[in-house]
Amino acid sequence: MDIKIENLTKKYGYQKAVDNISFNVKTGEIVGFLGPNGAGKTTTMKIITNYLNCEEGEITIGGKSIKTNAEEIKKHIGYLPESNPLYNDMPVIDYLEFCAALQGIEDKFIPGRVREMVKVCGLNSEKHKKIGELSKGYRQRVGLAQAMIHDPEILILDEPTTGLDPNQIVEIRRLIRELGKEKTVILSTHILSEVEATCDRILIINNGAIVADGTAESLRKKAKGNEVLSVRIEDGDADTIYKTLKAISTIDSVDFTDRSKNRFEIQSSVGSSSKREIFNVCVKNGWVLTEMTPSETKLEDIFRELTLN
């Protein structure tokens, strides 16, 4: 099911939480929401799940407007809210059965679904405990289990991996990627490496507006147009190498990172690559090129650049 959001605006009083946001999410796509606190990620998710209304704008899911088909559409959405609220007085199994029944699963299929979710989310050892007795990580797993219990076509996950141990994080990310092949997934997170590891597409939201939209790759390209290489050249005099490198036409700047070890950081001018030229220069002068690494712009830097202003 595709999600189509057009000109969505949501105000809390005079404050605009979401300001004229538009984007599409296609089936089989995992979209990651990134943004500082209070950027409007959670509000957008709450509107998609029909917990909040959108005053302005239109959301269509699978070709149907959520304003007129709320009950129908809610069946196809699995939602994990930010704070992961759960009924503490209910045993895990009972809670999952309750959620399955509410989502309209036929009675005869409920035990099977619950069993599967217990297996998928690794809840087997805790399934008879009351939710209130569980640790944070297990609560998070129960939250994920209830979101996926009815095999929804759309998954909205607000910070799905908080409170999980590293093994479980890897496991859940793998699960989300698996699900994302045939379902539509929107997740929000603060962990930038998580977005890179799981999402096909990244939306960076700041002050209620989308400031970047694309794959991690394309965001990098956009953030920094020029190539940066860290290079180590041996068997030559550092200053001579420095001057020779500087003379190459495509190179913008050369800096020493470690003079004694002949390490340099080389920035090419916008839109050009100087890897070949550096290699050729080394060959010509009989130097040995022992290291050449393109240094990638970190997602953290892009994030800071876009959201700090």
Partner: peptide, 14 residues
């Protein structure tokens, strides 16, 4: 208070 109302109302129920 606990926020479970959000979970409840986003299920397929009015």
């Amino acid at each position: 208070k606990t926020g479970t109302i959000e979970l409840l109302l986003t299920k397929a129920i009015s």
